[in-house]
Write a protein that binds this DNA or RNA. Sequence first.
DNA 1: AGATTCTATGCAAACGAATGCATTGGATAT
DNA 2: ATATCCAATGCATTCGTTTGCATAGAATCT
Lengths: 337, 337
Amino acid sequence: MSKQYITLKDIAKALNLSASTVSRAMKNNPAISAETRELVQNFARKHKYKPNILAMQLRTKRNTTIGVIVPEIVHYFFSTVLAGIQAEAEKENYNILICQSNEDYKKEIKCVQTLLDARVSGILASQSKTTKEYDHFQEIVDNNVQLVFFDRICTGINTDKVVVDDYEGALKAVDYLASTGCKRIAFLGSDSDLPISNNRRMGYESALRKHKIKVIKSLIKECDTRELAQKIIPDMLNESNTPDAFFCINDEVAAYCLQAVKAVGFRVPEDISICGFTNGYLTEVTEPTLTSVDQHGFEMGITAARLLIDRIEGKETKKGVVSKLIKTELVLRNSTR
Amino acid sequence: MSKQYITLKDIAKALNLSASTVSRAMKNNPAISAETRELVQNFARKHKYKPNILAMQLRTKRNTTIGVIVPEIVHYFFSTVLAGIQAEAEKENYNILICQSNEDYKKEIKCVQTLLDARVSGILASQSKTTKEYDHFQEIVDNNVQLVFFDRICTGINTDKVVVDDYEGALKAVDYLASTGCKRIAFLGSDSDLPISNNRRMGYESALRKHKIKVIKSLIKECDTRELAQKIIPDMLNESNTPDAFFCINDEVAAYCLQAVKAVGFRVPEDISICGFTNGYLTEVTEPTLTSVDQHGFEMGITAARLLIDRIEGKETKKGVVSKLIKTELVLRNSTR
DNA sequence: AGATTCTATGCAAACGAATGCATTGGATAT
DNA sequence: ATATCCAATGCATTCGTTTGCATAGAATCT
């Protein structure tokens, strides 16, 4: 279709030079005289010459596109990470190709295929919740394509990763809750296969131990969506010994938790404290506003992209697996004492 | 770096055929005998042959990547549109390259360059708020690259577009407000240069006229961010004749409006009704929940991608400009009577 | 002046796939 | 038996760049 772009050969012909000379002149190759260089570059500028990246990449076998696989685009945290990836990639003149798995294993496989087909030189991935097998990720590695996981890492495969310090985030949050007098702190988590949930539970338990509070099984639930929140939380509030705090796996659950708690007549934070995880849009518009653990998604995106690009360009030379931790930050608002 | 992929030539050598035969066999070219076809395709499958898209595109000069320019990725509406674009593009085996202008004119120019450099065959764009000149968009057209605007269209350039029916959305919302008895309905809009804001104001005014309510200048403000909301709204509430409804340009402003209104002691919706625009995450977690106009971002993404791909493939043959309207939907919740 | 070096350039072959145009061998027609 | 045709395959070129190597002419050395 579009064929209006001018090529090296066109320039060469116009200037009575060979394509190789033009190529070198454009790249400031010292073998080319200053005059010709100027001549060529001026001509190129004037005629808006754009090198054909396809041809370039075909020839040099190096490609400046990286692929990203996220479970969902319409999601505060992931879109924040995407923004970070985009920022860093752009700085390094990489393009990013984005795929969405929709939390679906089959779709995730298709994403991998799409990205490998596109010959990306590296992939940043966050695993879908439903993924239990890893052959598709293994295929990436087998094809010598760099792979870095972020946030939802894949435990079945040994490769670089960037994760939020979930343990520490949970620890700080629950420590804070306990230090303000909460004794029966509930943990609303996710599938315990997911490291992010598991690590937070460990942080949660550590904090409890630190405060000499017993870990009670019935206060730990798998509850990571709006639907589950609206089903599970009212039940928990009906039991004899109601929680006096909820530490939630994400802001959404925390927000619906807030509603459920208020609906039953408890005051927040006087009777029950609530803390979320993400620190996204929602935190400022709930009533009361929501205390939450910030995951620094933008920074995570930058870090992950940085690491991937360093791998691609051979600047990160560590032989084994590189793991980076992104620090969390507890942001206090009015849903906690 | 990555050179492990197997090529047509490799297959040819292994099977003692020529590359052209292999190429044709892979494409089910009838000139090739059934046996050879099977032979080749089985071999290819077994060795996970992936055609090199770069080479293919270089040769055929058609490229299946489309670029997208959005003002912000971390934004409910735009991320929804992105998801729609992604879904449609994937269905048609197109890849999408995403750029973010950050509402910055200079950055937007850079986005265009990046996408043209990448030789995308089409671009979907939503203009940044700060853009007042259009040379960069013109360059897209000049290079014979297809261009479709969505949502924030560029008035300075004559090309296909997909927009929300802002006029009708505003009309429906304000009509509803008036029909529930609101008499002094404020409009919190955006820069009047932006068609989306202007069209909504017109819808707003039409609704008022329909209900024989006078349009009052002081009830129309430019207020499209959290910061402005927190500054402007309290002032409006302090005036003698306070509004009894706010129709806001987005959910965010509506949510902060809600807070400001309640802070002064008004009840929502009894004293003052509030209506947002977007119908995103926020609407369910405010108190009361927020009535809002749904923009059907996902559908917009699909429609825009569809149109662009049809243009690229020559299936949309209309000579002039194609404009598509996405219908809105008023979603009633508890912030309106 | 002849040999050597350097400077600036061009030639040609890649990269991987697609494709118009041969070419081959066998089958059919005459 | 020869001419004709078709089916199946190969050759060679092309897309736009890059790059090792060759080469031309000028400059320097001896």
